[in-house]
Simulated scan of single mutants.
Amino acid sequence: MTHPSSIAIAAQPARAHAALRPALTFKLALTALFWGGTFIAGRVLAQSMPLMTAAFGRFLVAALLLVLVACRLEGGLPRLNRSQIAVTAFLGFTGIFLYNVCFFGALARIPAGRTALFVSLNPIMTALAASLIFRERLGLRRWTGIGVALLGAMVVITRGDLAGTVHDFSQSFGAGEALMSLAVLSWAAYTLGSRKAMETLCPIAATTYATLWGLAFLSLGAAGEIGSVPWASFGWRIWLSMLYLGAIGTVVGFIWYYQGIREIGPSRAAVFTNLVPAFGVILSAGLLGEPILASMLAGGALAAAGVSLTNRK
């Protein structure tokens, strides 16, 4: 999943007491559903084409649409100075390039539902990184939440066999889990980098430039793959998955999420992102026929409780 929740939190003033309209509730819940669906669409692409090509296709669609959105809503994209070029390039490398290479790499190796549950670690790793880099004080409650969330993640990763993993770590933590862990770290870096970007850029401009940078980085890797991809043999599911990832999972989700940010503030809107792992597991079971393990339910619940405890004011 790639979503702009971290940028939004840094960008807009909170409206803690604004009424939450039913229509907005529906849009924010549907956004979480869309982001949960990116794991299913990503799984389809990851099993059909090389990783760089899959990520490049997704963000080619997203970049074209985001530029149109920027022109429509912001009157175009601003010219960047050297500092803005550097920070948006950093965002493109971490949040678009590195995150999505790891995202598709993980989906090529492990089930979509299992991959989706790693998303619950994003806010936890971001909080830890902020504590180390910006010296943010977490406090006992937030440290407790981080511990609970990490325990939940370990239950998911080890499939409930924590003791057995101590003796054979490779049995539970393979290449797919390692790639998704790296994706979580890259998203934390993207989140922290977005703070600098949002000092001088609006959310749409920052995200559009980050996407364009990420697309440029992905094109370098995809250049050697595209010629060998059997495009003519791809069925509708593959093309629909790519369109879904770029248009629905990225652009529509982005616009609706920022509507929530404007109306009710970032903290309340961000609560809806906790639905993403649950939707990812449910959709992977319903659309891909993946099993839902008891360890996934227990670990996912623990991770969600930890995230809620960490983010509670």
Rank of each mutant, 00 (worst) to 15 (best):
Ala163Thr: 13
Arg135Pro: 03
Gly160Pro: 00
Ala127Glu: 02
Gly139His: 02
Leu151Gln: 04
Phe169Trp: 11
Arg135Asn: 05
Gly139Pro: 01
Arg137Gln: 11
Ala129His: 08
Leu151Gly: 06
Ser172Leu: 10
Leu132Asn: 10
Gly139Asp: 03
Ala178Cys: 09
Asp168Val: 11
Met154Ser: 14
Val155Gln: 00
Gly147Ile: 10
Arg159Ile: 10
Leu151His: 06
Gln171Tyr: 15
Glu136Met: 06
Leu162His: 01
Phe169Tyr: 10
Asp161His: 06
Arg137Ser: 11
Leu185Glu: 09
Ala130Trp: 10
Ala153Tyr: 09
Gly145Lys: 01
Gly152Cys: 04
Leu151Met: 12
Gly164Leu: 03
Arg159Ser: 11
Arg135Leu: 09
Phe134Val: 08
Gly176Ile: 08
Arg135Cys: 05
Ser181Lys: 11
Ser170Cys: 13
Leu138Tyr: 02
Arg159Gly: 08
Ile146Gln: 00
Ile146Cys: 05
Val184Ala: 07
Thr165Tyr: 04
Ala149Val: 07
Gly147Thr: 11
Met154Gly: 13
Val148Met: 07
Ala153Cys: 11
Phe173Val: 06
Trp143Asp: 03
Ala130Arg: 05
Gly139Phe: 03
Gly174Trp: 01
Thr158Tyr: 12
Ile133Thr: 10
Met180Gly: 04
Ala130Tyr: 06
Trp143Ile: 08
Thr158Ile: 08
Thr144Gln: 09
Arg135Asp: 04
Gly152Thr: 03
Arg137Cys: 09
Gly164Thr: 00
Thr158Arg: 01
Trp143Arg: 04
Leu128Glu: 09
Leu128Gly: 07
Thr158Met: 07
Gly139Gln: 03
Ala127Gly: 02
Leu151Ala: 13
Leu179Thr: 07
Ala163His: 12
Ala175Leu: 15
Ser181Met: 15
His167Thr: 15
Gly160Asn: 03
Ala153Thr: 07
His167Glu: 15
Gly164Asp: 01
Gly160Tyr: 04
Gly160Ile: 08
Gly160Thr: 04
Ala175Trp: 14
Ala175Asn: 13
Val184Arg: 03
Arg159Gln: 11
His167Tyr: 15
Leu162Tyr: 07
Leu138Lys: 02
Ala130Val: 07
Leu138Thr: 00
Thr165Pro: 03
Gly145Ser: 04
Ser172His: 14
Ala130Gln: 09
Thr144Asp: 07
Ala129Asn: 05
Ala175Glu: 15
Leu151Phe: 14
Leu150Lys: 03
Leu185Met: 14
Thr165Asp: 06
Val155Arg: 00
Leu132Gly: 09
Glu177Ala: 02
Val156Pro: 01
Ser170Gln: 14
Thr165Ser: 12
Ala129Gln: 05
